[in-house]
């Protein structure tokens, strides 16, 4: 019989945790996209050898504790304010790599002004935008990106645009601004999608060297707890319902 010790030999290694990830167990629900995206950011930082020169700005939301998992220096911003905090950091330390990590409530509701204006000023920062169409941490309330008809705890009969307004496509909005150089929409629900998302994040970080403005990577994500689905069902639901409204691919690449 094969023992565990026989399996964990170096030659059997198919996945290695990035050195830029800490050993802290993640608090995210099983099936949540955050852990995958954190890993991709850590891998990009490791591969670019910029652990000592990268400053992250964490949001308010489930990923408020991103600094517990990615082993770099961080600022924990107030809800929605990450692009302003990142502006302060980048303007004063232009040689550092500065990125924000924001959810849809953070980036597309309470922080709309900070997002739009950081993009419009062309700050040389990277924005990673997790869009799962719901407020996860506070328990599944309607988000600015919640789809029409989609159920949330503050729209229990489904989002109705007559009452709740329409879901907002922030990436499409900021792609119109001359201050952004790269805007893309990705997902991490399949191995192929994960590889593409990593390439996008890498490009978004590399772009900071070119000083051509904001690079924004939207990751259309699941919140299976908030959506009240199994992880597999959530991935399927996302592909069937989220992707038609939030189609994957580059919106801008200059």
């Amino acid at each position: 019989m094969i023992d565990v010790k026989d399996i964990i030999k170096p030659e059997n290694l198919v996945f290695k945790k990035s050195k830029v990830l800490t050993d802290t167990p993640m608090h995210y629900c099983p099936g949540c996209s955050h852990g995958v995206v954190h890993n991709l950011i850590a891998e990009v930082i490791e591969e670019m050898e910029i652990q000592e020169t990268t400053i992250g700005v964490a949001p308010v939301g489930c990923s408020v504790f991103a600094y517990n998992y990615i082993d770099i220096d961080w600022h924990e911003a107030a809800h929605g304010r990450a692009p302003a905090v990142a502006t302060g950091i980048k303007r004063l330390m232009p040689d550092k790599f500065v990125f924000t990590y924001q959810g849809d409530g953070d980036l597309a509701a309470i922080g709309t002004a900070e997002t739009i204006h950081a993009c419009n000023r062309g700050e040389n920062i990277t924005i990673v935008f997790i869009n799962n169409g719901i407020y996860g941490m506070t328990g599944g309330q309607m988000a600015p990106t919640t789809l029409e008809g989609m159920v949330a705890s503050t729209c229990p009969s489904g989002r109705d645009h007559a009452r709740d307004g329409y879901p907002i496509k922030m990436s499409d909005l900021v792609a119109q601004l001359p201050g952004t150089c790269y805007v893309t929409r990705q997902a991490v629900h399949t191995a192929g999608a994960v590889r593409k998302a990593k390439k996008a994040i890498r490009k978004a970080f590399e772009n900071q060297k070119r000083k051509k403005g904001v690079s924004l990577v939207e990751v259309v994500s699941t919140c299976n707890s908030g959506w009240k689905m199994s992880p597999v069902d959530a991935n399927n639901w996302m592909a069937e319902n989220m992707f038609p409204f939030y189609p994957l691919g580059d919106l801008k690449d200059e």
Binding site: A78, A86, G88, I89, R91, L92, E114
Partner: peptide, 26 residues
């Protein structure tokens, strides 16, 4: 010295937060 006109006082104080956390005089 960096001088920047922000889009609001909400933004300017948060730019200060980022700058102050960088150990700079802001």
């Amino acid at each position: 010295m960096v001088v920047l006109q922000a889009e609001s006082e909400v933004a300017s104080i948060n730019m200060l937060y980022g700058g102050a956390g960088s150990g700079k005089r802001v």
